[in-house]
Design a protein around this nucleic acid. Structure first.
Lengths: 168, 168
DNA sequence: TCAAATTATTTTAAGCCTAAAGTATTTCGT
DNA sequence: ACGAAATACTTTAGGCTTAAAATAATTTGA
């Protein structure tokens, strides 16, 4: 029993084990949230102060940076894990500010192609460089030789949650 | 050099190492964000569907649950790591809905004491129970014997980021 | 004592986010 | 061919979030 590798079904656990696991799960969640909130808050602050920019806008540009020929607008909500309606005003503003273009497709007039402008790309690269440096600064005190381990754990966690969401 | 336990100062690294570390740091951040977003989205959805409630409201109640005699309003922004202005309308609504009371202090008329009502506490406990079960469900596929390790890593990460933010 | 600084909280302006409903446009089934 | 279903996107309503300015009450210091 002690050697089992598979997660034990909840129903097979006694009260004390169950309680302990609940606590551990809650702790994982609270720490995850705390780390993310901490880093996200600082990154947001710096984006605002240094570039008068927001993270959601940066995230859109980051997706577009890897697509020289642009992206179907509908791809963005999927990749960024946000709702489609959310993106409309963000894309609107990026267009208005000259970072990206939005052109209707000729083959399907429902579809729009978004593509970074030359100017937008230039500005994005500048911000991305700072973004990397900020992250390096924030994570500098974490032992470098344990990044890979943590990445692996988080990958597994993500898969585990995804699987749990798949089921029902 | 290969045995060093201390994080190597950035300035002492050559280009390739530096690049690799940047990538690892970015990966950690993206995975952290992905896990949090995934879990948070699902919890939010369930709070809304099952209880017509939001997570920020739940978070306020969770703080108050541990304080039978209530809490100075100003403690909430600190504990929840949000701005004070943010809390005003959330607390307003919780008061309006009968979950909490907000009473001005007699000693200092700037200060307000917030306290969960009996009814509020009853409802909170019910939601907290579901919250725990949801979390258990979402994390069920992650090996239980590795929760503690992950918690430790995240604690260290949090401390590392906090330290990095302290300095300047 | 009393003006200035500090502290607690609210208000405001602007942006992010979701769910749900709405508008085109295209595709599918018959 | 043509109405129904599906798809791509926008709009709307409501809540969260922040930073910065405003309000009110207390404390501090000359």
């Amino acid at each position: 029993m002690a050697l089992a590798k598979e997660p034990t079904p909840v129903s097979a656990k006694n009260g004390a084990d169950q309680e302990a696991e609940y606590r551990a799960q809650t702790r994982v969640w609270l720490r995850l949230l705390a780390c993310t909130t901490l880093i996200e808050g600082e990154l947001r602050r710096r984006f605002r102060e240094e570039f008068d920019f927001t993270m959601p806008r940066f995230d859109v540009l980051a997706q577009l940076d890897r697509e020289p020929s642009g992206l179907v607008l509908g791809e963005l909500p999927k990749r960024l894990m946000v709702s489609a309606g959310n993106l409309t005003p963000i894309v609107d503003r990026l267009v208005a500010d000259g970072y990206i273009t939005r052109t209707p497709s000729n083959l399907d007039r429902r579809v729009q192609i978004v593509c970074m402008t030359v100017e937008g790309r230039k500005n994005f690269r500048r911000m991305a460089k700072s973004h990397g440096a900020w992250l390096a600064e924030l994570l500098a005190n974490f032992p470098a030789d344990r990044f890979d381990g943590l990445i692996g754990e988080l990958d597994e966690l993500k898969s585990a949650v995804r699987d749990a969401l798949q089921k029902p």
